[in-house]
Design a protein around this nucleic acid. Sequence first.
DNA 1: TCAATATTGATGCAGATGCATTCATATGCT
DNA 2: AGCATATGAATGCATCTGCATCAATATTGA
Lengths: 147, 147
Amino acid sequence: MRMKHDPSEATVTAWARLVRAGQTVLGRIEAELKAADLPPLSWYDVLLELSRAENGRLRPLELERRTLLAQYNASRLIDRMEKAGLVERLPHPEDGRGQLVAITSDGRAAQKRIWKIYGPAIARHVGEKLRPTEAVELARLLQKLID
Amino acid sequence: MRMKHDPSEATVTAWARLVRAGQTVLGRIEAELKAADLPPLSWYDVLLELSRAENGRLRPLELERRTLLAQYNASRLIDRMEKAGLVERLPHPEDGRGQLVAITSDGRAAQKRIWKIYGPAIARHVGEKLRPTEAVELARLLQKLID
DNA sequence: TCAATATTGATGCAGATGCATTCATATGCT
DNA sequence: AGCATATGAATGCATCTGCATCAATATTGA
């Protein structure tokens, strides 16, 4: 029998499918990127956040907050992206401890190149599976989980 | 302007939230397990699948299929769980290449111990955020993505 | 002012993951 | 039967992640 703090059947099913759908769709999309010799999605997330930011630059801490990356993962991802020439580190003008990460023009080009694959992949693996109203409803329900 | 193969706004939002909600809720739940000194969720997935299987045993390949683990990850996860005494490897009676992974009684005990934290965590982080009909609807929409 | 504390970001080390390959056995073909 | 190919599972190596800690600079408060 179910203990009183246990989740309902429907809750467990929703949770299981959330994990499974996330993994599955992410796997399908990442596979397309890899097949096109493009970097993983986390690179795109960083490029997107930077490109949307004022002057194409953000403090690492802010980038971490927006991408949900852990501090040390962000630090190392920035290392790799810097080595690849997609971003650069600048000293922070007002806070000597900090820095600014800036997207380079190579970075912007990479972002566009990735989107050419990524966008259609989202359309195919998410958009085509749902009616427009269903996509809106799904987004709404998922948002409730985050709040 | 949007290219004709690009996803709609609603699709992109749904996709972004799917990834974010998955990560966020998973992070919250894993944090509770860790705080209770319990192993990661992948261990629970394996224990659950084994416990549900005929005789509490499955071939690695079948386990991989059910848990979405990659072959080499499964092989190593089974290593660790075997070392911890939660599962054991048995030679496969009919296929000399293969084996059977069996849950031990310690494994079943661990499964119950994990559920005591995991179940309520699901209830709190998923169940309480949604009305019952919403949970059902969410599960339905996520299923469409997997198909 | 200056010592104590807090914050930003990097890093050494251990553990996990991904990839390609390997080893062993099974299956198919002639 | 005997060889070629396919399949199940493990493993060496490189990369990535997580944790704890460190160094540098900022902020606070006496």
